[in-house]
Write a protein that binds this DNA or RNA. Structure first.
Lengths: 337, 337
DNA sequence: GTGAAAGCGCTAACAT
DNA sequence: ATGTTAGCGCTTTCAC
């Protein structure tokens, strides 16, 4: 067996309480005593049993992280940012990947995180009232990435402003006939980006005195294939747009493909801009709105740890900046080919 | 406070030992007794405290997962596959993301997984002897994805065979002058794919009676930029290849870019094939060797759980199949444009 | 088939 | 500043 706190106590010639205090850096321990304990612990290669500590203290030093899909770019970024902060704060990261709708239901009914976490971090999931209720029974702080909910810690970006900047960029290039490829605003999942990004698009148009044209507005469902489909549909109609704002890079990829298949050129005939600055955006020479997902996750984790440390948070939502990245899909002089 | 095992025992009119046995599905409990206990537990909405159970039993029901970078496609896939199996097996997944070299060192010296996991799963990391030694002090089963080590569970693919198939495909198209863009076989990290994939390339050439030409062989460092650089270098030399095998899709993207920038056409002038079937490979119309990373991870997790369940594994390494995916970068008739 | 009781290895309240 | 002690909520051995 590995050494227990008693072994350390014996070796250091103190009680187990003193060992506990010394090792956890609590006050009211004489410097010399602490040194003796630390030395003894090192010599024995002692590590406290986290489970015994958790049982005794009631704290788990663990944060549960809930993501809809780990294997998507966005959520992988999230996980990276979270892991860094949590590790640094001495917290374990327990991963819950919902995967699909049955998986999602299972999570919210079985509640596998019960009695295992000090806090829960939910990434970009818009929860139903029932789901939110379920989480609240965990009786622990909840933080959400990118989704504002009353009484819940939130970090994200200003999707509306980002979309506005994207469309303003197109307008500044002299484009006036700007299509929109977006997500379903009526989707029962109620992802927020489609709502806000569309809003920014409309704001930018109206600020430039351009009238919104429903013939230029198609659903791309946040996938490459959807974006391609949407663009094809738009291209079959009159008038032809001279630019497209896609609410995600994936949809923008699809749109570019549809445009080229139609024998048109990007950006000469139609300029394309996306949103996210996905890894492959540079590769495909796509102009876009960059957001630092990992940073958002990091900030959120840090705030959550502060709350766990007892600090009272004032703000509930914190927004990080986005940045326009101009590439060849809107500006031919920047083209990498 | 949430109900404890005593509350359940009281309500069911049995002892806590019986509650424990009933809830865990152990034998030697009368059917009627078990029913009473299950009912009581349900009525109280009881869930056992995992930490108390772990402290008492010494088992953690947790598997530690070590990845070099969560935010890369490959490892995100791995995580998805692992989470599914572990969750299904009732195990918690504790995530350790190394991130960089200091992070790696920290992990292997601090050993944050100590006393927290029943087993460790390491994804595609070739460990130094010291690192392996460190892991062994955890005294628990170890499984590695894609890396064969004596006495360690392993699942992966046959990189050599995959590479051979890729190059054979190029040869079957009538190409004879086939360049290689790969990883550094001398890299101190000693990733295995560069070694094996290069080997497969050489085997295929030699089987076809084609002589290896070092002027056609450049390092691409498994990045897009590296692939582009390597291809440019090769294109500056004589003779010009009529095909390229890149050891990863990313490097293939870079190669395609370099080829087009040089005013040449893919695949007419130079056919390009990659490896992995990265998400964006289809988008970029890249022929490649598909591997199902998530399945590899799933299989490995399952095998690990079997070992934890006491079954003795016979085989140490298990290889999953790869598949040639032909797209427009080698076959113009399949081009999506 | 069921129960009593001794831990598991810590933390925290209280005493000194 | 340090020690004593009573839990934390289970599992497991050993009786019965």
């Amino acid at each position: 067996m590995s050494p227990s706190i008693e072994d350390v106590a014996r070796r250091a010639g103190v009680s187990i309480a003193t060992v506990s205090r010394s090792l956890r850096g609590l006050p009211d321990v004489a410097e010399s005593t602490r040194d003796r304990v630390l030395t003894a612990a090192r010599e024995l290669d002692y590590v406290a049993s986290p489970f015994a500590a958790r049982l005794a203290s009631g704290r788990t030093s663990t944060v549960g992280v809930v993501v809809p899909f780990v294997d998507r770019w966005f959520f992988a970024q999230v996980l990276g940012g979270l892991e860094r902060e949590l590790q640094a704060g001495g917290f374990d990261l327990l991963l819950y990947n919902l995967g699909d709708t049955p998986g999602r239901e299972r999570f919210f009914t079985v509640m596998p995180a019960r009695k295992r976490v000090d806090a829960l971090l939910v990434a970009s999931l818009v929860l139903t009232d029932m789901e939110l209720e379920a989480l609240k029974t965990l009786n622990c702080p909840i933080a959400m990435l990118g989704v504002e909910v009353e009484g819940v810690l939130c970090t994200g970006i200003d999707d509306r402003a980002g979309a506005r900047v994207a469309v303003e960029h197109l307008i500044s290039l002299g484009r006036r006939s700007i299509a929109l490829i977006g997500g379903d605003t009526e989707d029962p999942m109620r992802f927020t980006p489609p709502l806000y990004r569309r809003d920014g698009y409309l704001q930018a148009l109206s600020a430039a005195g351009i009238e919104y044209d429903p013939r230029m507005d198609e659903l791309g469902y946040f996938t490459v294939a959807g974006g391609e489909q949407a663009m094809s549909t738009i291209l079959q109609r009159e008038p032809r747009p001279d630019a497209v704002f896609a609410e995600s890079d994936e949809m923008a990829y699809g749109a570019m493909r549809a445009i080229r298949r139609a024998g048109l050129r990007v950006p000469e005939d139609i300029a394309v801009i996306g949103f996210d600055d996905h890894e492959s955006a540079e590769l495909l020479d796509l102009s876009t709105i960059r957001q630092d997902v990992s940073a958002q996750a990091g900030v959120l984790a840090k705030r959550l740890l502060n709350v766990l440390a007892g600090e009272t948070e004032t703000a509930t939502a914190e927004l990080l900046p986005t940045e326009l990245v101009v590439r060849g899909s809107t500006d031919p002089s920047r083209s990498s080919y």
